[in-house]
Write a protein that binds this DNA or RNA. Structure first.
Lengths: 208, 208
DNA sequence: GGTGTTGAAGCACGTTCGTGCTAAAAACTA
DNA sequence: TAGTTTTTAGCACGAACGTGCTTCAACACC
């Protein structure tokens, strides 16, 4: 049998190297040679775990989606535990939405990588399936959140979908600005915008 | 003197070729050879008008910013002509915000190119200055729009800035989704989200 | 203890990239 | 017509890329 090596752990190490490279130098720099260097391995070793460069990228994309989705769903569970319209629920909602933003180093790396892959997927067909999974997963979480925040759970179905898409767009825009214009879009500004949106949101279903 | 060639027009043709390549195959494919092919020129010819590859990219970035800024400012002037809170003004506002979205072929190409350059600017320092100019210019337009929509022009200064950033983030998020998930974010969905946001916006300053 | 499977490493090939440089072609001036 | 300057075209070089294929060392099992 082989050398004692946990193949799955090794793959995760390589993926972490991919993340660091994308966050620091962009996705186009995530070549096999660069990744191998960053992971402290030889090119042949990386290729032993990933059949091709595309394989490595798709696997990394999938990994970052799983990380983000995991955070979002556990945060959503925390929201569901709180009683509706309570201050505790509001805090849980802010915490959930904060998972989208690059508020600490780990979140920033994931956000960078996530954005890079989603944009790359527009061009590279191999990434398209994962990009769609990413969108579906995150949209589902935001959709459930909107349902929870909608008073009584009633409300027009169409309005709920629209509000979910609106919240999702705002969060993606905030994340983008925080990544690209960090000196303008500070953490405080993010927080202000977020609370303003939540306030605007709670009013809309009632006005219908 | 030279061959009868309008140098500025020739540069614009090359820039158009850059736009087509970025929109179709991504920014990393916008190499000198590809651009020259797309423009129907030789590599040497392109290099005659642009000192380096970076030069070409920076010039193209600047060009797309000017195009977008021009559209926005003329649309903003149209908004300013209408009487506040009138249906005509509302239409003009929707038209202005529609300039952000890939609603037709030309707007889609510009949006693609704009997004690609802004994200590339995070990595490539040569693009940073133009990226900041882009952000400043667009933020100024959106800021003036928020001022126009704020009843009486009064309202807390901080609130206005927050609302401007919120609108900008939402528009960028909408644009992004329309580019990356066109099957989910249709033109109709864009319109719905946009009107929902405008409704939420008009309520906030009054509630303060 | 021998043996075979597997992780790790590296070479070689063809392609593409940016760029410095040279030379032909074209068009206006004298 | 001869000369000058701009435009166009192309070659050559070094670097980086993905990938097929080979080689070496290490460990588990019979």
């Amino acid at each position: 049998m082989p050398k004692i090596v946990d193949a799955e752990a090794r793959r995760q190490e390589v993926v972490q190297a991919v993340f660091r490279i994308i966050a620091g130098d962009g996705l186009e720099r995530a070549s096999l040679r660069e990744v191998a260097d960053e992971a402290g391995l030889a090119v042949g070793s990386v290729r032993h775990y990933f059949a091709s460069s595309d394989d490595l990228l798709v696997f990394s994309f999938s990994a970052v989606i799983d990380r983000i989705a995991g955070r979002l769903e556990s945060a959503l569970a925390a929201v569901e535990k709180e009683t509706p319209a309570s201050p505790e629920q509001h805090l849980a909602v802010v915490n959930l939405l904060g998972q989208f933003l690059p508020l600490d180093e780990e979140l920033a790396v994931d956000a960078c990588v996530w954005m890079a892959f989603r944009h790359a997927a527009r061009i590279k067909p191999v990434l398209a399936a994962e990009a769609e999974r990413s969108h579906r997963t995150v949209a589902a979480v935001v959709g459930r959140l909107i349902m929870l925040l909608s008073p009584g759970g009633a409300g027009d179905q169409q309005t709920l979908v629209t509000e979910a898409e609106r919240l999702l767009a705002t969060m993606d825009g905030l994340c983008m600005h925080a990544l690209l214009q960090p000196e303008w879009m500070t953490a405080e500004m993010c927080s202000d915008v977020l609370t303003a949106h939540l306030r605007s949101l709670s009013g809309v279903p009632a006005a219908r």
